[in-house]
């Protein structure tokens, strides 16, 4: 989605009622983020809404992007937020071979997740690593993608296919139009 570099559009202040709604929405979408919400989105601070190309809106605090949203899709956190609170999100992992494709903006394909280096929830073992107790994730939910052998997440996006289906099919696109490290949103300078 942010493969090309872009410049931010107009920046407006968010109404406090809208800000409360965003806050509620974020907590609803990411329940495990709740203990940290005051740190990320302090109640008293003034949020800004920055318009980005392709009808994406970015909510920012000061000079830092926090969450972005494409039309009425789920609110997705900026990767810098994810890097600070990685345990609060549902996580998958891709194998090493897929990293370079993801970081050049390709659609994440399912084989990168199902291969030995990748990780999908739904199996009983090590349920802690997924951030949701290891249950299957349905299509349309927001997931954070980590990479094999790396500590930090490299991508975040909306699942195109449920994880259960992925394990059966083992092919096709997994996440399209995500936000990855080094993309336009990552490099965006709001100051």
């Amino acid at each position: 989605m942010f493969k090309k570099d872009f410049t931010a559009g107009s920046k407006t202040k968010v109404k406090s009622s809208a800000q409360r709604a965003i806050r509620a929405k974020v907590v609803e979408t990411y329940p495990r983020l709740e203990p940290h919400i005051d740190e990320i989105l302090p109640k008293k601070e003034q949020l800004d809404l920055v318009k980005l190309p392709d009808r994406v809106s970015l909510y920012s605090l000061g000079n830092e992007g926090l969450f972005w949203q494409h039309m009425n899709d789920p609110i997705i956190p900026h990767l810098k937020v994810i890097h600070r609170y990685p345990w609060a999100f549902q996580r998958l992992r891709i194998d090493r071979g897929a990293i370079r494709f993801v970081l050049s903006g390709a659609t994440l394909m399912v084989p990168g997740l199902t291969s030995p280096g990748g990780r999908l929830p739904g199996t009983a073992e090590d349920s802690e690593v997924y951030g949701n107790g290891g249950t299957d994730i349905a299509a349309g939910e927001v997931v954070v993608v980590e990479a094999e052998g790396k500590e930090n997440a490299c991508m975040v996006g909306v699942l195109k296919m449920g994880t259960k289906e992925m394990k059966e099919k083992k092919k096709g696109p997994g996440i399209e139009n995500g936000h990855y490290v080094g993309d336009g949103l990552w490099k965006l300078d709001l100051s």
Partner: peptide, 18 residues
Amino acid sequence: RPPKQVLYCGNCSLPPEY
């Protein structure tokens, strides 16, 4: 849990491992 501190590369702004 306190937020994790992530270091970013001063050259390309990615986390160094990337």
